[in-house]
Design a protein around this nucleic acid. Structure first.
Length: 506
RNA sequence: GGCGGAUUAGUGUAGUGGCCUAGCACGCGACCCUCUCACGGUUGAGACUCGAGUUCGACUCUCGGAUCCGCUACCA
């Protein structure tokens, strides 16, 4: 078994947008597969016909495409084990359900929802198992003739697993170690529904993982309680020798309060919980996405990877390849990780300021300016981006940080004025205009030298002059070095702004 | 309620019995840089859930309490 090629899968059900927690699960699967020279496949688990949401599958595929997680086979790609959509594998499952029925590890049950309801109401903590299945209408209590008759009559039966009682089931988990559970607490889970001719998750999952030669099942912690059932299924099928290894990942928790991260937290706290924007086809509700919010996929990947896993190094920035090389379940934590949106922003900031000026300019800045109808040649745009990029968290911030290059301030920040505008500012600036006016070459060094010499000669306070100057040019006490700004603005505009401000600020 | 899992600063984590006066990062504060805001650098406050054991010695092992999380569907 250990010499089998590593094969993992990510198997979401298409019930809506792909949750960020699901993205992390997929990411860990991906990292593990690549680390071990293995393969990862994408399977769609749409065995619940009632919860199917159109568009969800495409959304999932597009999300991973954006994030840079490439699957080796599966839905949208194909492969030797196609089809990868469970709703298209009906006939396959039927065969295996029959195998379990024949070997006595499963049985037919005809109990109606109402009858089940009644049983639950009558017995506290009721569960359909070895102790209670005598009360049900199933092929264990009914005669063979009646069972055949009911099925022949088209009655909507269900197939349940027959869990043998009093057995300790061991689950070997890559992150949690050995977990032992007694079969008495397991119920006879439904494996197959005749109503839609589809298996439930448990059956389909085990059959597919076996058929698709999955070696490692890496999934969320919510599956840990049903892992023993899955172990049983492998055993009942006779596949125990090739049973995959399990790894149950800790959950992603709400940033504040109790519980796991949900869609509503994003709405409430104002951050996305989905990779891409999603419009619910039924309700029309719109959920924001990381892509549309201006996140770089690399930043999201890095952030998510370190939420529950840590390579044990004293740094936080890793490329996908580095993470692949470093990934190991030994360093996956066992407890749930609170989602920290501030850190997500920091990651984006880091990835953005580490981008080349050219890339930021061509990919984001120039298109942004064009959309606003602002003419600006590439050289100038490049210079501006270089000056402001250290202050941005999102590409959109590029505009906020640089708009003053294109738009003369129409108002002046109150706080800045209060702190930096001195009684002598108007006189100083009036004089500055006279100093600037004769300068023929308005470049950075030249202008700076002339202005600084003037300040020194007159014995003025550099801070007072420069900050007052800054307010008239930028509109607030912020931004790049002043002469970098004026060199881009040019003499005419610089002087015009000072004069305009002088006329407005009292 | 039952069963399972978990528990290091506000958050993500390092730590595998003595190296811990518990490290790193985000966030918060200060200082330096400086014409401002960022960036960068330095730095401050801030944590081993509690109680018993085991041990010469426990953040690290065992047991119990507390708390949190998950599961408990003809959903995944």
């Amino acid at each position: 078994m250990s010499d089998r090629k590593v094969r993992v899968r990510f198997a979401p059900s298409p019930t809506g947008a792909l949750h960020i927690g699901g993205v992390r699960t997929a990411l860990y699967n991906y990292l593990f597969a690549k680390k071990n020279g293995g393969e990862i496949l994408l399977r769609i688990e749409d065995t619940d016909s009632n919860r199917f949401v159109p568009g969800a599958e495409d959304y999932i595929i597009e999300s991973f495409k954006w994030l840079g997680i490439k699957f080796d086979e599966g839905v949208g790609i194909g492969g030797p084990h196609a089809p990868y959509r469970q709703s298209e594998r009906r006939e396959i499952y039927k065969k295996y359900v029959q195998q379990l029925l024949d070997s006595g590890h499963a049985y037919y049950a005809f109990d109606t929802p109402e009858e089940l309801e009644a049983m639950r109401a009558a017995t506290p903590n009721f569960q359909y198992d070895a102790r209670t299945r005598q009360q049900g209408k199933n092929s264990l209590t009914l005669s063979k003739e009646e069972v055949d008759q009911r099925i022949a009559a088209g009655e909507k039966y269900v197939v349940r697993i027959k869990v043998e009682p009093d057995e300790n089931i061991e689950v070997d988990d890559l992150v949690r170690g050995k977990v032992v559970i007694n079969s008495n607490i397991l119920d006879d889970k439904v494996l197959y529904k005749a109503a839609d001719e589809l298996p439930t998750y448990h059956l389909a999952n085990i059959v597919d993982d076996h058929l698709m030669e999955i070696t490692h099942v890496i999934r969320g912690e919510e599956w840990l309680p049903s892992a023993p059932l899955h172990v049983l299924l492998y055993r009942y099928f006779g596949w125990a020798d090739t049973m995959p290894q399990f790894a149950h990942l800790p959950l992603l928790l709400k940033p504040e309060g109790n519980g796991k991260l949900s869609k509503r937290d994003g709405d409430r706290l104002g951050f996305p919980v989905f990779p891409l924007r999603w419009v619910d086809p039924k309700t029309g509700d719109v959920s924001s996405g990381y892509r549309e919010a201006g996140y770089l996929p690399e930043a999201i990947i890095n952030f998510l990877a370190l939420l529950g896993w840590n390579p044990g190094l004293d740094r936080d920035l890793f490329t996908m390849q580095e993470m692949i090389d470093l990934f190991s379940f030994e360093h996956v934590s066992k407890s749930g990780a609170r989602f920290d949106y501030e850190k997500a922003k920091w990651y984006n900031h880091e990835y953005l300021i580490n981008m080349q000026d050219e890339e930021l300019t061509d990919q984001y800045y120039l298109p942004m300016l064009q959309q606003k109808g602002i003419a600006c040649d590439r050289d100038k745009a490049l210079k501006i981006v270089a000056l402001v990029k250290s202050r941005i968290n999102f590409p959109a911030d590029l505009w906020e940080q640089s708009s003053f290059f294109f738009e003369r301030p129409t108002s002046y920040d109150e706080k800045s004025l209060k702190k930096r505008w001195k009684p002598e500012s108007p006189a100083l600036l009036t004089e500055l205009v006279e100093v600037l006016a004769p300068i023929s070459n308005f470049d950075i060094e030249g202008t700076e030298k002339i202005v600084m010499d003037w300040i020194e000669a007159k014995g003025y306070n550099t801070g007072t002059v420069m900050n007052s100057f800054r307010i008239t040019i930028v509109g607030a006490a912020k931004g790049p070095q002043m002469f970098d700004v004026t060199a881009i603005l040019g003499k005419e505009e610089t002087i015009a702004r000072v004069k305009a401000a002088l006329a407005v600020i009292k």
